[in-house]
Amino acid sequence: MNQILKKNFRARFIRDFKLNWMCYLMFLPTIAYYIIFSYMPIYGICIAFLEYRPAIPFFEAEFVGLQNFQTYFSGMFFLRNLKNTLMLTSLSLIIEFPIPIIFALLLNEITNTRFKKLVQNITYLPHFVSIVVICGILQIFVKSDGVFNKIFAFFNPNWTSVNLLSRSEWFRPLYIGSGIWQGFGWGSILYLSALSGIDAELYEAALMDGASRWKQTIHITIPGIMPTICLMLILKCGGMLSTGSEKIILLYNPAIYNVADTLDTYIFREGIQGADFSGTAAVGMAIQAVSLAIMMCVNKITKRLSGNGLF
């Protein structure tokens, strides 16, 4: 049986190849790209178990087992980095995540199409402004003689002007706040498109039954966009351990490492700039594994609760 299938498969493949060899050729660059830039790094993770140094070839490096993991997890940076990462991502989940949803719901209630379009156009704009500009402008604003300090001093006469980004307690609000400013409009697009997909007849039926706008929102609109919300939630939870280092690198400085240094920035600083490849590859691998596990758990939970899952 197996033999027949195998032969059959080979015959099918040969026939298909003769017919569509051009298609195979056309897909080749994509395969090459994925093998080189996605699968080779996955294989490269094994340096997490080696004592790799840039000078010696990869395959001659000494195998050290879990030592790299041990060094980091028992080191002084692990707890600080983990705490900062979880603080930033959970703040982002609690504050930043619902805002586009609420914004989309509110925007959906506006019936004047031109006004709605205008609001959309304006609020989408920050998404296209580069992160360097946003962080750079923010740095100028928070200087001790910058706009923020002037505004605070205006409302509070006892205010002492400081560079806010040199103060630990200000990093998180500024990070989350600028994230909201940049992302709330653009983030709402997905929900708006989900909202426009809800059947208008449902609203008509609800109106017949005497449901108010609020009741319509609760019973039709929110269930209607629930699959989209679940999908975004799963993705967001999967990224619970990765803050991304791009924005933090632009904002932080050694004075606020105690709140701003996350797992990702640690990897960047020690790995790329400090050339500790093995140690940081181990950290990266641990993050990947835990993220995947979290994503699967959340996927299972949301699937059970609402029937919507990613896979």
Partner: peptide, 9 residues
């Protein structure tokens, strides 16, 4: 792979 293995590749 993450940042570091990609960088090394």
């Amino acid at each position: 792979g993450g940042l570091i293995p990609t960088y090394l590749v």
